[in-house]
Design a protein around this nucleic acid. Structure first.
Length: 591
DNA sequence: CTTCTGCAGAAGAGCGTGTTACGACACGC
């Protein structure tokens, strides 16, 4: 919540943030929950939309209303923001509700009802006052607040003071792999998987959702809760546990029997919005869907407890089929933009389609591997090509190569190439795109290279217009093949630039330049929404690990997940080309 | 606020767990 209106937000995100804030305020006033939910849906649809909604609202209102979850009310509000720069009822509510009250919704254990009681009956208007009145006994005397609740809220506040929010995906990935190894090693466990936003491949995770099938849930919960990385067990039931690790990450475990696994996997993978859409669809077809299965809707409660035979439950595939839907890959279960449920899912790129790595560093600049070790590592991964792309001269902090050193480096790469067979080695460079869009080496040197990845590393706070011009100039340079980590953002770090991705992608498409998804979990740049925009504008996409050490090859799945979320298909990815097609691409005519 | 059924008005996902008060409610997913 603190990051709302932060620099680096796109125009859509700034509009979406207003909707989200209005929803928070209305929730505290006790407005119709369906209305609040609808506002949040609009906020997410606006955030994720590849369309320039502010630009469209005045002349193409109908296209906005046609999007899923967007109606007249949303269009009116967007128009109001565009015309007046503000939203009248948001301003009115902001005056009525003190600024410190909505953030209290973020305190685990507090929902809108409790926040409202705290504010209206105890005059608590911010986190600091809340803490004081928890400690002096004021809160404990309020209805609905017993000793346990007071202790839990204090605990939550202390946790929040540690400043931990969402985590980069790799933190979640590593924790999940460790727990899965533990669980899969237990004889009571038939199957264990991670679900949630980690399975959907988001660039950050708020917590980890683990799912186990077993006939002995209590023993599984006991094993799980005894793990030594756990700081605190938050919830401990017979089939459901929730813990917080020492690094602050929350991990939720749910145990079910195998015949329900598909329904549970679907439910815990989410997104929440996707679940709601599926359940509404089930209702319309006279069925009811919960985490145990898809059942005929006979109007009674909880079908799984009454021995009702499920229509589908063991696999996700069977449930989608029974709902007359194509199977929707986890990466597309976000209910975003123009992706209404029921549209046929594209055949997405997958890990085994990736045939080469086109962005890697050696000890010549800031990598850990020699040319030879890098090449052998790439060969061991089964790649037909590895591109060696050390930093250029301006990247002093990364030991970028001078013109002379690059010439020597090219010769050294050619020599290794003559000694190692079975993989093609490209002599390249990750050349800096300077602030004005020029490249960091002279043209004649760039033309000697087999491949050029051009990337921005500095001046990442440029305004969108300057950034767009800068990147366009790089894409138009005849030597450039790939635009590396185009915005320079760092996940949970810096916002990076906010250029007009559509314009850049359109130019890249014309010139045969690929836009990179940098697979490092701290970058994931392009991000998922950018990939959609770039594909619509006609660009090819690269998925590169930006290898600095052997383990970096293992980051590929993060990049592929981002690509899948952006609906990238194999035919639009340069890393999926076979060796000849890749050569053909690199030999394309340059204007 | 949006969507769907029928054009104005209703309906809107479903469950486990914990707290607080002992059936009901809030919360979080």
């Amino acid at each position: 919540m603190a990051t709302r209106y932060a620099a680096g937000m796109s125009a859509n995100e700034q509009i979406g943030a207003r909707f989200e804030r209005l929803a928070d305020l209305l929730e505290i006033t006790g407005a119709n929950p369906f209305r609040i939910n609808a506002l949040r849906r609009s906020a997410r649809a606006i955030d994720a939309s590849p369309l320039d909604l502010a630009g469209m609202i005045l002349h193409d209102r109908a296209s906005i209303i046609a999007l899923a979850g967007m109606g007249e009310g949303t269009a009116n509000r967007i128009e109001e923001i565009v015309r007046t720069g503000t939203m009248a009822d948001l301003d009115t509510l902001s005056k009525q509700i003190p600024a410190g009250v909505p953030p209290l919704l973020d305190v685990p254990g507090l929902g809108p009802k409790k926040v409202r009681v705290l504010w209206q009956t105890a005059g608590i208007e911010d986190a600091a006052t809340l803490k004081a009145k928890l400690l002096d006994g004021t809160v404990g005397a309020l209805p609905g607040f017993g000793a346990k609740t007071v202790a839990n809220i204090l605990e939550s506040l202390a946790f929040m003071e540690r400043g931990i929010g969402r985590f980069c995906a790799d933190v979640g990935w590593n924790a999940a792999q460790r727990f899965l190894a533990l669980l899969r090693g237990a004889k009571e466990v038939e199957r264990a998987e991670f679900a949630g936003s980690l399975r959907r491949g988001r660039d950050t995770v708020g917590d980890i959702d683990l799912l186990v099938s077993s006939s002995h849930p209590e023993q599984v919960c006991e094993l799980f809760c005894a793990d030594r990385e756990i700081e605190k067990v938050l919830v401990r039931g017979d089939t459901k546990c929730s813990v917080r690790l020492k690094n602050g990450l929350q991990v939720d475990l749910r145990v079910l029997t195998g015949d329900h696994f598909g329904a549970a996997y679907l439910y815990f993978t989410g997104s929440k919005e996707h679940n709601v859409l599926l359940r509404e669809r089930a209702q319309r077809r006279g069925m009811t869907l919960n985490e145990y299965g898809l059942y005929p809707d006979d109007g009674e409660g909880a079908p799984q407890t009454r021995g009702v035979q499920a229509i589908a439950s063991a696999t996700e595939e069977s449930i989608y089929a029974a709902l007359e839907l194509p199977f929707i890959p986890a990466h597309l279960r976000e209910e975003i933009g123009a992706d209404p449920l029921g549209a046929p899912a594209p055949t997405l790129i997958s890990m085994d389609s990736i045939r080469c790595e086109l962005h890697a560093h050696t000890t010549a600049s800031d990598g850990e591997l020699s040319i030879e070790d890098l090449v052998l590592a790439a060969k061991a991964r089964g790649f037909h090509t590895i591109a060696i792309t050390d930093h250029s001269r301006s990247s002093g902090q990364a030991n970028g190569l001078s013109i002379e050193r690059l010439r020597e480096h090219i010769a050294a790469i050619r020599e290794v190439s003559s000694m190692i067979s079975g993989i093609r080695i490209l002599a390249g460079s990750e050349v800096d795109i300077l602030a004005d869009g020029s490249l960091d080496y002279p043209d004649d040197l760039l033309s000697e290279l087999d491949i050029v990845v051009a990337s921005p590393h500095t001046a990442l706070r440029q305004d969108p217009e300057t950034a767009t011009k800068r990147l366009l100039r790089a894409v138009e340079h005849p030597a450039v093949d790939i635009l590396g980590h185009p915005t320079g953002r760092m996940v949970r770090g810096r916002p990076g630039m906010d250029p007009d991705i559509a314009a850049i992608a359109q130019c890249a498409g014309r010139r045969g330049v690929a836009l990179e998804i940098n697979a490092h979990p701290s970058r994931l740049d392009l991000r998922d929404t950018h990939v959609r925009i770039a594909l619509a504008a006609g660009a090819m996409i690269a998925i590169n690990c930006d290898v600095h050490s052997e383990e970096h090859f293992d980051n590929l799945h993060f990049g592929v997940a981002t690509a899948r979320r952006g609906a990238l298909t194999t035919d639009r990815c340069v890393n999926a080309l076979d060796a000849d097609a890749l050569s053909g691409w690199l030999a394309r005519p340059r204007g």
